[in-house]
């Protein structure tokens, strides 16, 4: 293949019919407030672990809704709980992460 000095990024097309959403559905049973997330990103902006490990609750929830893997991000979480303080939807994000750690099956 000819080298143009740049490349195309991988397609991010999402097929919700084939994506594995079982983890998200299981999480929603334990933490129903996950459904109320509006992906505002307040949690990511305040995240202590974010700068070190790329942790972002917003991204975790979005990725789960798309059936993607979140292991590396969740492993970086330090449970400091600042995300609860800033969440405009009042989601108990800390408990959400703990529940996710409990049921993680990948």
């Amino acid at each position: 293949m000819m080298d143009f000095g740049f490349s195309l990024s991988k397609s991010s097309t999402l097929n919700l019919d084939t994506a594995d959403l079982s983890l998200y559905k299981k999480l929603c049973e334990l933490s129903p407030d996950a459904r109320t997330c509006m992906a505002c990103g307040s949690c990511s902006a305040t995240c202590t672990a974010g700068p070190f490990s790329g942790m972002s609750v917003r991204k975790v929830i979005l990725d789960l809704q798309r059936g993607r893997d979140v292991k590396a991000m969740v492993q970086g979480c330090m449970l400091c709980g600042k995300c609860i303080m800033v969440c405009p939807r009042g989601i108990n994000t800390r408990n959400l992460i703990l529940n996710l750690c409990k049921i993680y099956d990948r």
Partner: peptide, 13 residues
């Protein structure tokens, strides 16, 4: 006492 399937990992910090 609780067991978690996913344990934190800070080795890359």
């Amino acid at each position: 006492l609780r067991k978690y399937a996913l344990e934190p990992d800070y080795s890359n910090i």
